[in-house]
Design a protein around this nucleic acid. Structure first.
Lengths: 194, 194
DNA sequence: AACTAACGCAAACGAATGTTTGTTAGTGTA
DNA sequence: TACACTAACAAACATTCGTTTGCGTTAGTT
């Protein structure tokens, strides 16, 4: 029988940590809490991870690098800018639904990262925002979008997509697809009837 | 000379607490940190406040009751629903700019409230959201709005208005009025050019 | 001048924190 | 059989936390 040696317990710790950090915050989650969830003692966790800070770093950077690589893929297509923005909104919603705990942590607890990880993370986020903003800017230049302030458009979209975390639960009123369609309608065509 | 006895130091504590909680989170802010900011020792703060929890409660409920009373005023007018929604968006932006620290705390750290305050706060928020949602629903029924999903519209607006906290600093590119106009355009008429 | 209340401080409290240490049982390999 | 490695544990570590206690000082009141 194959043992569970060289196990994926490290992965389990990261998953449970993301859930707890989302639920109670980084500072509000003790190593003993986390260990309890994993099913071992707090001391035993140090056989699998270096520190509590390392856990936070691993979660945050996995999320940020996912966003950045997906942005690059979308940038590389030659669809209209409307479609690129739709794809980005869709990416955010899908990632939030599939990996909500980790995304939440990257959204809220990144500020507890220690240097140099903190600066690294902020740079990565800025890089992502720059790329996203550029697509909006080019879309305006191409006549596909209204000439709104680019920062306002960018942050409105990024924020609007965050509440999915607070709201979405599997088996709720709206399916993921309907949810996505409604948010895209709201952001691209607005609330007001013309 | 009028003394500073029976002083407003309690108010000062609350203001500094809001700033620190916003900056470092409730759990990340120690009473010693806060005392340092106020200019006294941690022990001395207990001459002015009952506990750290009380500070959080005072901040959160001041914000929530402001929102609720302002919503009631807007509900009472008989402007078109478009104007009511605009007024609500404007309220959120203005409050965030004028009292950003407290609003931030009420948005992020409310989950550290202890019972029964926690339930009270959640009920207040739910009440506010219900009232807001009703205005959107009536606006749709009146033919002023597109028939989007009401929850999606509500949370998109509420979230979109939150990023002002992360972004706005006095003396930045956009004035408060321009900012407000841009966000309203984005939310009511959408990004896409028709 | 005597009293009182407000307000500050230093010191200490127990509890909880992240982490280290020493040890042990089990497993794969030579 | 012998050795190395993995992974678990209990116990203890120093530090930090929110808070309490006791005591001094100051300022307004009688």
């Amino acid at each position: 029988m194959i043992t569970t040696r060289k196990t994926n317990k490290r992965q389990l710790i990261l998953e449970e940590a993301a859930k707890l950090f989302k639920q109670k915050g980084f500072g509000g989650t003790s190593m003993r809490d986390l260990a309890g969830e994993v099913g071992i003692e707090a001391a035993s966790m140090y056989n699998h991870i270096k520190s509590k800070d390392e856990i936070l770093e691993l979660i945050c950077f996995r999320v940020s690098s996912t966003y950045i690589s997906q942005l690059a893929e979308i940038e590389a297509t030659n669809a209209p800018y409307v479609e690129k923005i739709k794809a980005l909104i869709s990416l955010h919603i899908r990632l939030m639904i599939e990996d909500g705990a980790a995304v939440s942590v990257a959204n809220h607890d990144w500020k507890y990262l220690r240097e140099p990880a903190l600066t690294e993370f902020k740079d990565a986020r800025k890089q992502y925002e720059k790329g996203f903003a550029a697509l909006i800017e080019q879309g305006i230049a191409a006549g596909e979008f209204q000439p709104v302030n680019v920062s306002v458009a960018l942050f409105t979209i990024l924020s609007a997509v965050r509440w999915v975390e607070l709201w979405y639960r599997p088996g709720r009123e709206l399916s993921a697809e309907e949810l996505e369609a409604n948010i895209i309608t709201m952001l691209l065509t607005g609330l007001e009837k013309k």
